[in-house]
Design a protein around this nucleic acid. Structure first.
Lengths: 146, 146
DNA sequence: GTTCCTGCAAAGCGTTTGCAAGATA
DNA sequence: TATCTTGCAAACGCTTTGCAGGAAC
């Protein structure tokens, strides 16, 4: 199944009308494979000669987040909210402090620890958010020679 | 050593002038034991009959964050930036999805995992950010009877 | 006296909202 | 046709900034 039909089906299942803009936004997020800002989506659409208003993008993202087709995330030192396609696969991010590149990691060390926290702190853990900040391979190389 | 002199010393060590406002902001953050917004600090000062402008608080927090006396943090679904006193002790937070209460946990399961990430992903990990979202004890009780 | 800090007012920026026109079902 | 979606313009809330007066060193 290609992305267009995948996205169309997803929208129908959520009882949302299938509009050009919604399809485009979802396809962009799938292709990106990482969180994007409303603004970034706007520019990608513009580059692709798709006219759309920024406020429409915000409304679309809000709606999609409500239906859990996308996930809204915020990172440290990033003013804008970012939105990622919800692949339903638990993951974390590596965020390069130098170039800000975001890389996904699909392994997670926290399953056991969550139980421990639940017991010790009497806090019922529903989820967690974990990011690693540091330097990606490229930036490490650049730093060596600068 | 009481908080006033602790804070005064810290400011001097950072070559910052010791002003009433800076001392007050730092003391509030120490007392709070959790991250506060600029706005929250403003209201605490006002309640204490200390007149100050919001922009001054932002400037103070920015300066203190630069000198690493405080840490600027952002949480999911929280529009405002929060600032916490930097106790230099590694910790994480439990964030209640119901009442938004923030609780500190000082244990951390990630030291070993960071090494793994460094090796496997060729990403030099400098730090990480981890929060647990769920329900605190009080909210769990309330949910039972509602 | 010099440098840094602060209050005030205004602007900046990301995001949200009201409303009328337009598209989807 | 009824309902939902969109573009446009304006407003909103948090944060930053310019500038002149004031405080710390």
């Amino acid at each position: 199944m290609d992305n267009t039909s995948r996205v169309t089906t997803a929208l129908r299942e959520c009882h949302l009308k299938v509009t050009k803009h919604r399809v485009n936004v979802l396809k962009i997020l799938i292709r990106a494979q990482k969180p994007l800002s409303a603004d970034a989506i706007y520019h990608l659409l513009m580059t692709d000669r798709q006219s759309i208003d920024l406020s429409t993008i915000y409304r679309i993202l809000e709606t999609l987040a409500e239906k859990e087709l996308v996930i809204k995330v915020t990172f440290e030192n990033e003013v804008k909210n970012l939105y990622e396609y919800n692949h339903q696969i638990h993951h974390h991010f590596l965020i390069c402090l130098s170039c800000n590149q975001i890389t996904k990691v699909e392994s997670c060390p926290l399953r056991d620890y969550e139980e421990l926290v639940s017991e010790k702190m009497k806090f019922r853990v529903i989820g967690h958010k974990l990011e690693f900040y540091g330097y990606c391979e490229d930036c490490q190389k650049k730093q060596k020679y600068s």
